[in-house]
């Protein structure tokens, strides 16, 4: 993780905007800009001031951009970068469909502000396969029918890979416990456990 890169808004840009004639009407301070946006007076003005610069490596490719600070990592992936493999289930941290890896650890991208990932490495379901060759966990999910509708599957697979890497897949009970943050509405749980168990026992590098 990039530990030492403080982010503070671009003061010169803010000073410039403060002086501009468009904005003097709202007596601009950051709080005033936010009030302006929250009251829908001029969201563009407020957003221009409060945007955050972000540089993040996603599946091996570095992306540098300015984003609205409200952007979740999930929305950044899906809406800004069109990586739609990561799914939005509940968007409140209850279902696990949005699970991705940040610096090698599984997290919920819906409750992660994209701005906080500045300098990090993110891996999504799109970054798991090696070209056309499926990741062993992807292959095992297919073999064991580890899904029905498939909506939770990217999150299940990202979580399953982390589960083995963490060393939390030594028994079926442990797999169930450490996969409990990924909900499957179709109830494919027994097959998901089969898939994870097989990959774990197979000893392949995940």
């Amino acid at each position: 993780m990039n530990e030492q890169e403080p982010f503070c808004p671009n003061e010169s840009r803010r000073s410039f905007l403060k002086k501009s004639t468009v904005i003097t009407a709202v007596a601009l301070t950051p709080a005033a800009a936010i009030n302006a946006a929250n009251n829908h007076w001029d969201e563009h003005i407020a957003a221009a001031i409060e945007n955050v610069s972000l540089s993040v490596e996603i599946n091996g490719t570095r992306h540098t951009m300015d984003i609205d600070p409200r952007t979740s990592l999930l929305d950044l992936l899906r809406e800004n970068l069109h990586l739609t493999g990561t799914k939005k289930g509940c968007d409140y941290g209850q279902c696990g469909a949005c699970t991705v890896h940040v610096n090698g650890e599984r997290v919920l991208s819906c409750l992660t502000l994209a701005a906080t990932t500045d300098g990090s490495k993110v891996t999504t379901i799109e970054g798991l396969a090696n070209g056309d060759e499926l990741h062993p966990m992807q292959a095992a999910f297919i073999k064991h029918d580890g899904f029905q509708c498939g909506y939770c599957t990217p999150g299940q697979i990202m979580s399953a890979v982390a589960c083995i890497r963490e060393g939390h897949a030594s028994s079926r009970d442990q797999i169930r416990e450490y996969m409990s943050g990924n909900i499957c509405r179709c109830g494919a749980y027994p097959n998901i456990v089969d898939a994870i168990e097989e990959v774990q026992k197979g000893g392949q590098k995940v």
Partner: peptide, 8 residues
């Protein structure tokens, strides 16, 4: 709602 994000 919109907020300002800083990382001192």
């Amino acid at each position: 709602n919109l907020f300002q994000y800083v990382r001192p």
